[in-house]
Write a protein that binds this DNA or RNA. Sequence first.
DNA 1: CGGAGTGTTAGTCG
DNA 2: CCGACTAACACTCC
Length: 286
Amino acid sequence: MPELPEVETIVRDLRPVLVGKKIVTFKVTKRRLLKNPLSQFKKFMVGAAILSVERRAKLVLINLSSGYTLLIHLKMTGQLVWQGSSGKMRIGGHPIAGVAAAPNRYTYITLSLAGGGKLYFNDVRTFGYWQLIKSELLAKYHLKLGPEPLTKNFTAAVLHQRLQNHPRASIKAALLNQAVLVGLGNIYVDESLFAAGLKPSRQAGRLKPNELVKLWLAIKQVLNQAVRARGTSFSNYRDGFGRRGTYWEKRLVYGRRGEPCPRCARPISKIVVAGRGTHYCANCQK
DNA sequence: CGGAGTGTTAGTCG
DNA sequence: CCGACTAACACTCC
């Protein structure tokens, strides 16, 4: 679920309740989710204050007063839930049907904060991870990732140059590759390629200049619209205030196999490209 | 009930 | 070097 718009939504919702808070305890019941030794989490998190909460790519970044930054990747089913001291205020995403409470059987990490608030990390499939990295090394870490598609640095020329690094890959595979650009996952790639009128199997290095511009515009338009919609509610995803993201209702092709194409009314196809389920209109996307 | 499919990505294989 | 494929895991859907 969490692609750029969902992570952006979670970060915006968590920021005001987390910034300035001091971490009092750190508890983990599934060590595999930690990328560093537990001792480091205790040492650099307990007693530290949260300076800022940001998003980079699909990662939640929490900057700490200890000089370390916590990187949280939600992967497929990770969820951050904040609960205020009264127990009534809840913030988080992607609960499992029938497991509305936090903590629950999928809660594997718990932070308690000064003032009584708690931050829970739940993850059904346990692909997500927490990683501590020295804040001063963050810039170097970011170099492994492609550009942010919603910043003004992301020009059509940048997209072109990035795709040229993977000229023979399918455009779908290239757009899913976080080293090319960050933030797109399966849903938003399919939506962007539909908006751009491009067949997902096209070779990334063989787009004509006008097709590149269309794709560039499509990516920004799709992501901006999804951020405004507070993300996509696939199955039980919820935004920071327990609401469904509304992009699911706005999507044009993803998960619509057999339904009429909104542009030409012929049925949407589903095929496999780059090993992923891929939805597109064989008539409109060339 | 069994098998296929699911939003991510690191790692391996060819 | 590059890209395709798979494993990591638990659940839902058909």
